[in-house]
Design a protein around this nucleic acid. Sequence first.
DNA 1: TATGAATGAGGATTCATTCAT
DNA 2: AATGAATGAATCCTCATTCAT
Lengths: 193, 193, 193, 193
Amino acid sequence: MSARTEATKRKLFVATLALIGEHGMTGLTVDDIAARAGVAKGTVYYNFGSKDGLVDALLRYGVDLLASRLASAGDEDPWQTLSQLVDALLVFFADYPTFAQLLVSELWRTPGQWHATLSLVRDEITSVIRTELQRLADAGRLPDGVQVPTAAAALFGSVLVVALDWQVFQPARTKDEVHESVMLLIRGLRGTP
Amino acid sequence: MSARTEATKRKLFVATLALIGEHGMTGLTVDDIAARAGVAKGTVYYNFGSKDGLVDALLRYGVDLLASRLASAGDEDPWQTLSQLVDALLVFFADYPTFAQLLVSELWRTPGQWHATLSLVRDEITSVIRTELQRLADAGRLPDGVQVPTAAAALFGSVLVVALDWQVFQPARTKDEVHESVMLLIRGLRGTP
Amino acid sequence: MSARTEATKRKLFVATLALIGEHGMTGLTVDDIAARAGVAKGTVYYNFGSKDGLVDALLRYGVDLLASRLASAGDEDPWQTLSQLVDALLVFFADYPTFAQLLVSELWRTPGQWHATLSLVRDEITSVIRTELQRLADAGRLPDGVQVPTAAAALFGSVLVVALDWQVFQPARTKDEVHESVMLLIRGLRGTP
Amino acid sequence: MSARTEATKRKLFVATLALIGEHGMTGLTVDDIAARAGVAKGTVYYNFGSKDGLVDALLRYGVDLLASRLASAGDEDPWQTLSQLVDALLVFFADYPTFAQLLVSELWRTPGQWHATLSLVRDEITSVIRTELQRLADAGRLPDGVQVPTAAAALFGSVLVVALDWQVFQPARTKDEVHESVMLLIRGLRGTP
DNA sequence: TATGAATGAGGATTCATTCAT
DNA sequence: AATGAATGAATCCTCATTCAT
């Protein structure tokens, strides 16, 4: 892939993300994307084959970005790692609010055209969380009855929704306050001391 | 509003909800709605003015339904009330999965055409939760640092997301298991005993 | 025709005239007419059979009004009578600007749904003018080559257009100024003294 | 604008003009226009944005055509120039009867969607007439009390209406007869010899 | 590698008219 | 004599996609 091609694709990603942020997935048109990116409409098709192809590629691009961020979390204490993961997620969603929107609005749609790619995102995140929860479970540090996969999904969902609510309805809160709220919420998982 | 009109509107609500469940918001056409409801297309416009108007009315219809269910929750012990609210929400989302989808996919969209109505839904639900959390806070039964509005939003979001995840990715779980998961998750709010 | 019916019809005429004045013939809907008149839509159909029927009736109503005004003009001197006719037309068009608009916009349309009725209006007016011009011609007071029917049409058109231009583009002019302009214009018909 | 685009636009202009001539503005559909022009419906929207946009562009196209014709009139004697202008107008309206219809039916509509463009047409024509009348006024060759702008408007309107009446109600007349009628009518402006 | 004019199926909306009350 | 809910044909417009350059 030539440098020129790569630059074109990146311009299209940026334009798409901006437009989704402004008007949502509905109302996202190839015309607008091309105009915003400063290229001709045909270029989108030349590079991505279709509108869906572009969005799908954008999604994968986002997954990679997120994965690299989550990878940096890690601590001997699983609770510390969880705290770092929550932090990384909040920062990522703050950096790419559009991505959070996209995720929440498409992830649980029945047929969903990008379902495969989005499930990938979900798995990417929940598996990291699941790993830490499992470490805790193995160490007997989780209360009885906690189902690791369900708990991981719930934690992921909570962080996602809280991040969105933070930005849309309570932008005045600081990241640390929000982080604290989430951690307080899940203290229940720690079980009675 | 005549009985005939009311019947027509209800038919259109039912048809719309069914179609959103089948094909999502995208792919929802007035043609399909009218056909499914067994009325002419013009009837949609006569009754709701536009497709958006129909969805908006449907949303308000759902709010009322949900509100009446939440109203039945109530106990001397705030924790009991919270548990009942979580239960009512899970049951409602199980009864109207489409409504949960609609909520999650539209609630945090930036401008969003139904933003006003959806905020109403959010407020309707969170205010009930907030009331209970406040009762706990007033009684000194919440840990320091818990911000009631943020906690209420987080709790609502968690239940919503968990309900969706339950249906889409883990349909085998029973409602009680899911309820238990959520309650475990928020045990943290109870503070150190 | 009962008094009630007549009142209803008049209300519909008034509403229709007002709406045409505001939005033109295009954009004139039965819904709007009924709403403005304060009656149900069905009433239009009960009274006039169709939208066209209403407009047609309105047109005939206008013709009668105009005819009665023109009838009051009359003088021994045909030039005086012409002057009075021009005056009556200007006043009528000033009183019912919408009627002038309707006339000018529909009279020369090729198929034109109200062509028959509108031609009636045209004949009503031009025949009065024609009569006076013929009196002048018979008295040898018109220059050679003046074709009475063409001249009558031209005079009618001039007055109509001048009246409209007066209202739309030069509302500051007084009626007398406009009247004077028209009379000056047609002084040519008087021939070299 | 590429040659291809220009050809497409011209085809659409021709088709539109023909259809307006046949069925009037009402009854003008984008479907018909596209079919007549031999292009897809979308092409109309690609090139003009909307049906109104197409009509507006057509109007401007007509203005230019007319302006170039009027520009060829010119004589030392202002009366001669006026005569030539009247002739040019009659010929233009005979060549493009639809344009005359469009003009008369839309020019004096209250808000009117093409009011801006149509006013442009009106100004284009009346200003040329105004110039000649002003030359006469400056030379003291107009009777007292003639208001140049009003007289110009009246003259324009007369020619327009006479041209339409000629085609619709008196097609047997020759152009020269009609021309003569108009000139006779405005001889009044020449004042007492 | 990129362009942009053209396409046409698809979908929202309008509105004159009907008819049971 | 009047109502107004319902109709559905007619129309405008959108937008993902194609293709010749």
